Computed example of a mutant assay.
Amino acid sequence: MKSHRSFYRALAIGAPAPFQSMPVALERMIHFVPPHMEKVRAKVPQLIKQVDVILGNLEDAIPLDAKQAARHGFIQLANDNDFGSTGLWVRINSLESPWVLDDLMEIVPACGEKLDVIMLPKVNGPWDIHYLDQLLAQLEAKAAISRPIRIHAILETAEGVNNVSAIAEASPRMQGISLGPADLAASRGMKTTRVGGGHPDYKVLADDAGDAPRASYQQDLWHYTLAKMVDACMAAGIKAFYGPFGDFSDPAACEAQFRNAFLMGCVGTWTLHPSQIDIAKRVFSPEPEEVAMARRILAAMPDGSGAVMIDGKMQDDATWKQAKVLDDLAKLVADKDPEYAKFYQVE
């Protein structure tokens, strides 16, 4: 573990100084783009207006013979577009793969000045972050990049879950962590082929009522892991995200999974299909009624101390903090999205 004196020191001569606090950004949906496909790259200018983050995917779902084309396609889409307030991310190949070094050695010099975040798959422990941290500093110094590229880890191995707190605290580059349920299921030996979401066989039964049918209730396979990840992220001052939901034919289940993650503290999710963009935008933007109530609490307790009664319910410093979370998020959403600015009555 680095000492507190050296934690924020650049790891290479000439590299930009690490962020001491993360840039404020709205990241409700991280929209995945396969950059080896020209027809998809052509849609990026329109997608920039619709989503909070554009991510070029170089890892899973990219055929082995298209890895180089995906890398070069990402560099092209990065350099051909003005992203404005929309984030530009890339998911590189995992550290044990034969492609990862070329991903980094080519992308950082070619478009590192525009790149906000590198998403690192299959992170097992802080040592993976330390390796990427050092290498990025060297590449940034060599290419004279003016600001540090941040790191986002995917939690998709049992070892990674075991080390999630250390991963979250591994570097000042850490932007956040996403839950990767598909690879994590395989790593754990779980008996499911679903990509995220629940499973009808993971349930509890109501008590035996004799001849009457017993009610059953589906449980959330990912509740424990998501809660553990959120705690690790919040304690480290970084962001927690839900990952993929693979059943594009079931928008209701997708929305339920996204909403569970939002309520538990996640700030955003992945969108793998255009149909999921509006779901993510709706779920990860607070309801106007909740924002209005939050503002009533803040107005009644301007300094956040004491206790008041609103509609017969006690509000104190703890609910003031909850209200502040909602109000701050509403302002961030309103700055990005004029439609929501009207909902929240923010001018």
Score class of each variant (00 low, 15 high):
Arg41Asp: 01
Arg41Leu: 06
Arg41Ile: 01
Ala42Val: 02
Lys43Ser: 14
Lys43Ala: 11
Lys43Met: 13
Lys43Trp: 07
Lys43His: 12
Val44Pro: 03
Pro45Thr: 03
Pro45Val: 03
Pro45His: 02
Gln46Ser: 15
Leu47Gly: 05
Ile48Trp: 06
Ile48Ser: 03
Gln50Asn: 11
Val51Lys: 05
Asp52Tyr: 03
Ile54Leu: 00
Ile54Trp: 01
Leu55Ser: 10
Leu55Ala: 13
Gly56Trp: 04
Gly56Val: 01
Gly56Asn: 06
Gly56Tyr: 00
Leu58Gln: 03
Glu59Met: 09
Glu59Asp: 10
Asp60Gly: 10
Asp60Ile: 06
Ala61Ile: 06
Ile62Cys: 04
Pro63Cys: 02
Pro63Tyr: 01
Leu64Arg: 13
Leu64Met: 14
Asp65Leu: 09
Ala66Met: 14
Lys67His: 04
Lys67Asn: 04
Gln68Thr: 12
Ala69Leu: 11
Ala69Tyr: 01
Ala69Asn: 08
Ala70Arg: 06
Ala70Pro: 04
Ala70Phe: 01
Ala70Tyr: 00
Arg71His: 10
His72Phe: 14
Gly73Glu: 10
Gln76His: 15
Gln76Met: 08
Leu77Asp: 01
Leu77Cys: 07
Asn79Tyr: 09
Asn79Thr: 15
Asp80Glu: 13
Asp80Arg: 00
Asp80Pro: 06
Asn81Gly: 01
Asp82Phe: 13
Phe83Cys: 06
Phe83Trp: 05
Gly84Val: 08
Ser85Ala: 10
Thr86Asn: 05
Gly87Trp: 05
Gly87Phe: 00
Trp89Asp: 11
Val90Ser: 08
Arg91Ala: 11
Arg91His: 03
Ile92Val: 15
Ile92Ser: 08
Ser94Ala: 15
Leu95Asp: 14
Glu96Pro: 15
Glu96Ala: 13
Ser97Trp: 12
Ser97Tyr: 11
Pro98Phe: 09
Pro98Trp: 13
Trp99Cys: 12
Trp99Asn: 07
Val100Met: 14
Val100Pro: 05
Leu101Met: 15
Asp102Glu: 15
Asp103Gln: 07
Leu104Ala: 07
Leu104Asp: 00
Leu104His: 02
Met105Leu: 12
Met105Cys: 12
Glu106Asp: 10
Glu106Arg: 10
Glu106Gly: 06
Glu106Lys: 09
Ile107Val: 12
Ile107Glu: 08
Ile107Cys: 04
Ile107Gln: 03
Ile107Phe: 06
Val108Ile: 14
Val108Tyr: 10
Pro109Trp: 08
Ala110Leu: 02
Cys111Gln: 04
Cys111Ile: 00
Cys111Tyr: 03
Gly112Thr: 02
Gly112Ile: 03
Lys114Asn: 01
Lys114His: 02
